[in-house]
């Protein structure tokens, strides 16, 4: 029984690890700026999901106490922190897109090959 529980939690982590690997692969192999930007977003999403998954390990109930008390509340601490990380990730994406827009005036294809000499 105990072994089974550990196995399920490991299986839940599996897609996130795959997502991180996909993001890293994309970042390393991307030929232009836009692909790199999307790959970074994929890794960002995977990290956020990792936080959410770990917060939910103690239970799935929303951590707000009401009249009725539940036994299985989710951990609010990582959830509160990941909110900041989501906003920061969004800001990073915005800045990177602005730069991509600016660079596209001189290099419409936005290839790394043209930009780094």
């Amino acid at each position: 029984m105990h072994f089974g529980q550990e196995l399920t939690s490991l299986i839940l982590f599996f897609p996130l690890v795959v997502l991180i690997i996909i993001g890293c692969y994309g970042l390393i192999n991307s030929k232009n700026i836009f692909n790199a930007l999307f790959s970074l977003d994929v890794i960002d999403t995977a990290t956020i999901s990792l936080f959410v998954l770990i917060a939910a390990s103690s239970g799935l109930q929303t951590p707000i106490t009401g009249l009725r008390r539940y036994a299985n509340y989710a951990d609010p601490y990582p959830q509160a922190i990941i909110l900041t990380a989501i906003v920061i990730g969004f800001a990073t994406q915005a800045l990177l897109s602005a730069i991509a827009l600016r660079l596209s005036r001189s290099n419409p294809l936005l290839r790394f090959k043209d930009l780094e000499d």
Binding site: I20, S57, L95, L96, I99, L103
Partner: peptide
């Protein structure tokens, strides 16, 4: 153009490094 591209590189490298850092943080938290 060059400084804009360098700043892009800095931000994408820094963003990735901070994501790596966050993964480390959540593992330490568990």
């Amino acid at each position: 153009n060059k400084s804009l591209f360098q700043s892009f590189q800095y931000l994408i490298g820094g963003g990735l490094a901070m994501l790596i850092y966050l993964i480390g943080v959540i593992q330490a938290f568990t």
